[in-house]
Simulated assay, not measured.
Amino acid sequence: MTLKRITDAFSTFIDLVAEAVLALGALLHASGTTRLVEGPDGSFTLEGAGDTPAPPPFRLDASPLPPGLAAALKEQEVELALQPGHFLFRPLELPRRAGEFLDGIVRAQIDRLTPWNAADAVFGWTAPAPLGDDRIALTVAATARGRIAPLVEAVKTLGAKTIAVSTLPVGADAPIRVHAHTTAGTPKPARVRRILTGTLAGAGLAALLALLLADVAGGSLDRELDDLNRQIAARRLVLTTSNGGEAGRALATLERRKHEGAPTVLVLDALAEVLPDHTFVTEMHVEGLKLQVMGVSQDAPALIRLMEQSRRFTRATFFAPTTRAAEEAGERFHIEAQIRTPFGGTP
């Protein structure tokens, strides 16, 4: 995408937003429009002036104007409803997709549809009506800018806030607005457009500044984090070295005991592989590489031989007398043995 396309897209976006803002403002502030309706003889009547008594019909190009007219129009939104005889009407058919770009299309064809070019004419169009074959139809109304300029200037001198010029074609249901003017000096769309552009530019600069500050702050935080990690690594090295004092020796001892001790679950599993089915273990103790196991068996002496033959245990011996109780179906034994590798080294 070229720079020109990006610029055009941004300009179109700003125009659409400006129109939306103006439409919303008009909706929020709409308090009724004062209408000056032109009659067939060129005289005007006042409509929608609220409690102000309406003057008799008058001409805007005559002097003096009716008393109280200036008070009725001051700071008001005024619509000049002109007779259709002032305007030239031309039908126009377009593809349906052209409905999104009517302003530019109609403006480009004014010199073909009328005797005037776009700069010398005021114009408007009806709402597009759908046709067959994916097309739309509308009617363009146009007149010379110089024809309505005296009327707009006369209403402007009476203090109107905004002035809109419209006409109602014969047989039409809705008027066509051909011109809008504000007495604030600068057309409203242009003013809103400048405000929006300035706001977006300010927001962009603020975002850029925030990114720069975040980059600087992030770099500083990264450096501090690296510092902390180096300090932690150095402290760990001191604690784990053999010359690290009492704390280092204690840590080394715990680490050695963790690797030299036999896991109780694995010892119990190995013991279950060695003992026969008629033997039941009631108590077991593991301390380092030393195992003590107590229980009941129908052949207690054979257990010593079985444990000695196992790859898991060595130096098996009774550390208490073997006894037999009347209510038990076997001999109660107390055996002590050393645990072999892979759980840990033999002493």
Rank of each mutant, 00 (worst) to 15 (best):
residue 229 N to F: 05
residue 38 E to M: 00
residue 41 D to V: 01
residue 335 I to N: 09
residue 127 A to W: 08
residue 253 T to S: 01
residue 41 D to L: 00
residue 149 A to H: 15
residue 336 E to H: 14
residue 54 A to V: 13
residue 81 A to G: 05
residue 33 T to H: 06
residue 338 Q to R: 09
residue 75 E to Q: 14
residue 112 R to S: 11
residue 70 A to I: 10
residue 276 P to D: 04
residue 36 L to E: 02
residue 193 R to H: 15
residue 290 K to N: 07
residue 227 D to P: 04
residue 77 E to Y: 03
residue 271 L to F: 15
residue 226 D to S: 15
residue 109 Q to D: 09
residue 311 R to D: 12
residue 233 A to F: 04
residue 88 L to Q: 09
residue 288 G to Y: 14
residue 319 F to R: 11
residue 287 E to H: 03
residue 228 L to T: 12
residue 336 E to K: 12
residue 8 D to A: 12
residue 244 G to S: 02
residue 159 G to A: 01
residue 183 T to Y: 04
residue 164 A to F: 05
residue 263 P to I: 00
residue 297 S to A: 13
residue 255 E to S: 07
residue 208 L to F: 13
residue 203 A to K: 06
residue 20 A to K: 02
residue 243 N to Y: 13
residue 278 H to M: 05
residue 178 V to W: 06
residue 83 Q to F: 00
residue 333 F to Q: 09
residue 128 P to I: 01
residue 99 G to F: 03
residue 337 A to Q: 07
residue 118 A to G: 06
residue 328 E to T: 08
residue 275 L to Y: 03
residue 9 A to Q: 10
residue 235 R to T: 06
residue 288 G to S: 14
residue 340 R to D: 07
residue 173 D to R: 14
residue 10 F to W: 06
residue 158 L to H: 05
residue 276 P to A: 05
residue 83 Q to G: 12
residue 289 L to A: 12
residue 21 V to R: 12
residue 188 K to L: 11
residue 266 L to A: 06
residue 130 P to T: 08
residue 93 E to S: 03
residue 41 D to K: 01
residue 231 Q to P: 14
residue 183 T to D: 11
residue 72 A to T: 10
residue 167 T to I: 01
residue 235 R to P: 03
residue 39 G to M: 00
residue 174 A to G: 08
residue 190 A to M: 02
residue 223 R to D: 15
residue 65 L to H: 01
residue 250 A to W: 13
residue 79 E to F: 10
residue 99 G to D: 00
residue 217 A to F: 05
residue 293 V to H: 10
residue 202 G to S: 14
residue 58 F to Q: 01
residue 10 F to A: 02
residue 32 G to N: 15
residue 301 P to D: 01
residue 300 A to I: 13
residue 306 L to E: 07
residue 230 R to Y: 06
residue 246 E to M: 04
residue 192 V to M: 03
residue 288 G to L: 09
residue 316 A to E: 02
residue 174 A to L: 12
residue 179 H to K: 11
residue 148 I to L: 15
residue 277 D to R: 08
residue 119 A to Y: 09
residue 41 D to I: 00
residue 145 R to K: 14
residue 313 F to V: 10
residue 181 H to R: 11
residue 100 E to Y: 00
residue 106 V to T: 09
residue 272 A to P: 05
